[in-house]
């Protein structure tokens, strides 16, 4: 049990996909302009990651080595397409705001990375713990980046259309740079540096 807990917890900080492994930066940079997007994106990634880790771990002993990667990609692409259709049917506004980044989960290196590096070598339950940990780590990273960008870039915090917080002064003169692409690079670079400074990387 403690082994599962270890696999689960490592994804959150020690090998946080965004800040430590530096994987999945493309969606992290692109969609981290609002908390809504961060939640929707990490939900999509979590479901795909969980599904693909389970499938890959189940098939790991019978997949011929030569076609390993194509098989993983087919599994991942199927899950992504299913998620895309389900979001379109049941969460249309979220589907709209994630736009192209939802189908692009298929090329998110976190998902293939975990399939190849972990699920193809470990039993199912370890792979589930790994998927959940990494997914939560990804979600926390996206939430942190989105929170900073939304606060500085618009001066307010809105979640699903509800205004939770408004910074006086900043709301009327927001630092729009932070919701633009350069802001994404700045915020993520500073957070990466911070994680490094705090010595999170020491154990790697």
């Amino acid at each position: 049990m403690s082994r599962l807990r270890k696999e689960f917890l490592k994804g959150i900080i020690i090998s946080n996909p965004v800040f430590v492994l530096a994987l999945g930066l493309c969606p992290a940079l692109a969609i981290s302009i609002s908390i809504d997007n961060a939640l929707g994106m990490s939900m999509g990634v979590a479901i795909v990651l969980l599904g693909s880790n389970i499938m890959v771990a189940t098939l790991r002993k019978i997949v011929p080595n030569a076609v390993r990667i194509p098989v993983f990609i087919v599994i991942i692409a199927s899950f992504v397409t299913i998620i895309d259709l389900l979001f379109q049917a049941y969460f249309p506004p979220l589907h709209q705001s994630l736009g192209i980044y939802l189908p692009l989960i298929v090329v998110n290196c976190i998902v293939l990375g975990r399939a190849e590096a972990f699920a193809s070598k470990n039993p199912i339950f370890d792979s589930i713990a790994d998927a959940l940990g990494i997914a939560i780590g990804f979600m926390l990273a996206l939430l942190l980046v989105s929170f900073i960008r939304q606060m500085l870039g618009t001066g307010m915090l809105t979640v699903f259309g509800k205004e939770l917080l408004r910074l006086p002064g900043l709301a009327s003169h927001p630092m729009a740079l932070f919701v633009l692409p350069p802001g994404a690079f700045l915020v993520i670079a500073l957070l990466l540096a911070l994680f490094r400074r705090m010595g999170v990387l020491k154990n790697e």
Binding site: V63, P64, V67, P70, V71, I75, A77, S78
Partner: peptide, 18 residues
């Protein structure tokens, strides 16, 4: 033959599910 058949089977299942 085995890798080819395996991949074909996986794709077939994926397409059906989709």
């Amino acid at each position: 033959a085995r890798p080819i058949l395996f991949l074909t089977l996986v794709v077939f299942i994926a397409v059906s599910v989709l």
